[in-house]
Amino acid sequence: MIGDIHALLSRHLPHYEVRSLAESGRGLDNVVYEVNGELIVRHGRAADPEATRREAELLAVVAELSTLPVPEVVFIDPEAAVIAYAKLPGRSLDRHPVAEPARLAEPLGGFLSALHGAEPGTMLDLAPLDAYPAPTLLHDAELEYLDVAAHVPERHRPLIESFLGAAPPPEPTSPRFCHNDLGAEHLLADPASGELTGVIDWTDAAVTDPAHDFALIYRDLGPEVFERTLFHYDGRLDDAGRARVLFYARCALIEDLAYGLSTGPRHYADAALAHLAHTFA
């Protein structure tokens, strides 16, 4: 695969000298490579030329909307399912947490205000409508929990099992444009200053329930950062919205735990276990 990336770089950037090229991460849908410490090349596991073109168009629109830096496309190769963009500064919060996470709340609130404020009908030209029903999410979480229950500390199991046995919240009525995977692994920050420096991986962006974006902030950064982010948010999140934030956060934690204990990197499971107490409190 490294050879394929070399060939793509030669084709699209013929005068670009490749001094270093290494895999920097992989997920369910993509393998990511870093070139010369300045270029990110993301290779999709399945070729979908139209999806690659649409994502490049989406990133251009998001760059106009976002109050935080987002990836700037350098080139795309739709047939190879490759998109390359300039590397943003900073490190991901999942592996490099900042000393004062509460300082992240104001920029996150402004970012989500801008994102969720986009006209949904316009964004549907670039991002799909994601209306995955809550009962189905809960059923998926039940099945995943069966596979990982033995890895959950015994004191936490009753809380999880009580959640899985309860009714899901009512469905949302006002979908908005969302990042839709705003976990700590997709938020970059300067380790020294603690300032947010970018938001990456927009492959799951969709017109959906805004509570999805808040849910991963709650799961990964904690309830205090969630509440402070909401204070700086221009939109509205009522009691039903808050209930969905908790619901999505808990389903997402079980999903990451199962992923990290099976086919994914182990640090996903470690993070899920570390966040379990406040997510299910």
Rank of each mutant, 00 (worst) to 15 (best):
H6N: 07
L13C: 13
V18E: 03
A22D: 08
E23A: 04
E23W: 00
G25C: 10
I40P: 09
I40Q: 11
V41E: 06
H43S: 10
R45F: 09
R45D: 08
D48H: 13
P49I: 04
A56G: 12
E57C: 01
L58R: 13
L58T: 12
L59C: 06
T67G: 11
L68C: 08
P69C: 09
V82M: 12
L88G: 08
L93V: 11
D94S: 09
R95G: 06
P97V: 06
V98A: 05
L104I: 01
A105W: 02
P107E: 02
G109E: 09
L112D: 08
L115F: 08
L124Y: 10
A131T: 11
P133W: 09
A134C: 06
A141S: 10
E142Y: 01
E144F: 12
D147E: 15
H151R: 13
H151N: 02
P153F: 07
R157H: 03
S162A: 15
P169G: 05
P172I: 04
P172M: 04
R176I: 00
N180S: 12
A184V: 10
L187C: 05
A205M: 03
H212Y: 13
F214A: 01
I217V: 14
R219G: 11
V225Y: 11
Y233A: 02
D234W: 00
A240I: 07
F247Y: 02
C251K: 12
I254R: 01
D256T: 12
T263G: 13
G264N: 09
A271C: 05
A271F: 01
A272I: 04
A274D: 13
H275C: 15
H275V: 02
A277F: 00
A277G: 00
